[in-house]
Structures are given as C-alpha cells and as structure tokens.
C-alpha cells in the first residue's frame, strides 16, 4: 500500500493531469510502490455522492496524505471542492499555473466579468441570449482566483503544463519528508542562446515574423530572442521547462511567453518586464498588448478591468 493520494481538477484543462501521465515509465513504480490514488475524478471514475448517487448530500472525498489540485477557482463548486480537499488532505499541492496563479482562465480577470459573459452568451443579431446562471450550474465568482487565495497551499508547482520531473520530485519530497528541489532562477538562466549585449535594439516587437536562426545549427548558435528585438519573457519567468536542456519555447525558436509565472515569489511579470525594458533604454510603449504579459498570472489581482484615466490620453 502506497501513500494515499487524491487528485482534483478545478478550472483546468486536464493538461496538468496529462503532465502526470507524461512521467512515462517513471510513473509505474510511483503508482505501484509509492502512492495509492484514492480519488481522481478526471483520471478514474469516482463520484462525489456515492457511485449511484446514494452517498448523501455532502461531498465525499476520501482522506488522503497527498492532495493535488490543478486549475484555479472560478465558481462556487470549485470553492466547495477545494475546501473539502484541504480538509481531507495533509499536504495540498497546487499543480500547474492555473492553480498557482490563475493561468489562462484568469485572462478573464482583465475585463468586467458580466460584460464578458454577455459578450459570450448573447449576440446582437439573434434572440436575447441566456441570462447569467446562478442555479443548477455553479455560480461564477467575481473573478478567477489562485488556490492560495482561498485555502492554505503547502507546495506550489507552476508551469503550463508543469514539468513531469518536478511533479515526481514534489511527490517524492513529501514521501521522504524533505523540501523539494525545484528551480528558483529565471528561464534565461537555463537558456543556451548566444547573448552579446542588446546592441541597437530600442523597441520590442511581436512575434509575427520568424526569428533569425539557422535550422541546421543548435540553439546555442541562435542569438537571444530578446536581443533580436522580440518580446521574450525569459528574464522575469521562473525556470523549469527546460526538459532537454533548453527552455521549451526557445527550443522551438519561439520567445518565452511566461507560463511558469514570476521568477520572484509573488512577483509581477508585467511590472518586472516593463521595468527591465525601461531600465535598459528600450521603449516600453513599443510593447503591443502588454497586458497579455500577464496571460498566465491573472489571479492575485495581477489582471483587473482596465481603469481609464480621467484626463484624456494624449
């Protein structure tokens, strides 16, 4: 018998659970010797109210030593499930950027949620669309929250999706009763691209044209994408995606989009990135759609409906 483990997925896409499965061969000893999954609705059949609905009116999540929750909190059901997980699990792990800092669903936080709802469920040309539901389907919260805004979280494991090796490391650290060894530096720190100073770059552009590189040569022969003038978020983003020695996006010759969240604990990627650009003499106003820098970390108040200045903008 392994250590009991419960898994839950809230406002998530199941990519994080796929990341667990992506442990591949390493998953087998983990499953057969180390852990014993007692509850994981997204991977195996287990109902909240008894297998035939005969389990009464309260959530039935079994007790477990390890609890792993993916996805952020966006509706009342999520809060209920999360609180139950907190009650039943000794160690609660937030898995993936949605759980740690809101992730993609928290992009919604950047605009008024009622307006978004109307924009999605109503059209101008046809009959009035559906109203905002508040019964039968769980009521939406005012915004999307990271898990640690609602309950105490013991271990944070960001990434969209997280690195399978880190998932194993975190689970093993709990089993061995020690601190997990996870990256603390920035994506740039794990990036082998060639850096030679920013040179003439004084603006940054969107990635609508390809980077300059020779496909027959290794990544270490490609010039840093930020130095090429692309908006690469490596400097402000937590490392961890370099599964084959190169950050995942850089390996595909694409700039980092910041999916692991801020490299500084509780940092603010938008602020840090813009500050870094400004302090290096790069024109911040050249960043198109800069709020999208927060695309993976919209919880914790990092993305809010935009407030227009009272004076007219020039």
């Amino acid at each position: 018998m392994g250590v009991t483990t419960a898994l839950e997925a809230l406002s998530s896409c199941s990519g994080c659970e796929i990341a667990i499965l992506n442990l591949g061969e390493a998953l087998i000893p983990l499953l057969t010797e180390q852990i014993d999954i007692v509850h994981a609705p997204i991977l195996m059949d287990h109902k909240y109210y008894g297998q035939c609905g005969d389990g009464g009116k309260s959530l039935q999540i079994p007790e477990a030593v390890i609890g792993i929750v993916s996805g952020g909190v966006s509706n009342e059901e999520h809060i209920e499930v999360l609180q139950e997980m907190r009650k039943k699990c000794k160690v609660l792990i937030a898995l993936g950027s949605c759980a740690t800092q809101g992730g993609i669903p928290a992009l919604m936080n950047g605009q008024d949620s009622e307006q978004s709802f109307d924009a999605i469920f109503q059209t101008l040309s046809t009959d009035p669309g559906a109203g905002r539901p508040d019964r039968i389907v769980p009521k939406l919260l005012d915004r999307i929250y990271g898990l640690d805004e609602k309950v105490v979280i013991d271990l944070q494991l960001p990434g969209c999706p997280p690195n399978p090796a880190h998932i194993a490391e975190v689970i093993m650290s709990v089993l061995e009763d020690r601190e997990p060894v996870l990256p603390t530096k920035s994506v740039c720190d794990t990036c082998p691209t060639r850096r030679q100073g920013k040179g003439v770059v004084d603006t940054v552009k969107r990635f609508v044209e390809n980077a300059d590189f020779d496909p027959n040569k290794p990544i270490s022969d490609m010039r840093c994408l930020l130095e090429q003038g692309f908006m690469c978020m490596g400097p402000v983003t937590l490392a961890g995606c370099a599964k084959r020695g190169v950050p995942a996006c850089i390996e595909a010759r694409v700039p980092c989009r910041g999916c692991f969240g801020s490299v500084r604990p509780k940092g603010n990627q938008l602020l840090d990135m813009m500050n870094a650009l400004a302090s290096n003499g790069i024109d911040c106003m050249s960043v198109v759609d800069r709020r999208s820098i927060q695309r993976f970390c919209g919880a914790h108040g990092n993305l809010r409906p935009k407030k227009k200045s009272a004076v007219k903008e020039v």
Binding site: L271, S279, C284, R290, R291
Partner: peptide
C-alpha cells in the same frame, strides 16, 4: 524619469487612475 511613462501607463492596467 525613464520609468515614469511606463508606470503611468501600467497603473491603468492595474486598475488605478494614473493621477
């Protein structure tokens, strides 16, 4: 000074009036 324009812009992103 160099940071100022950026902060003024960003304040609005974070939901504060730049004033």
């Amino acid at each position: 000074m160099a940071r100022l324009d950026m902060i003024v812009e960003l304040l609005e992103d974070f939901g504060f009036e730049s004033e």
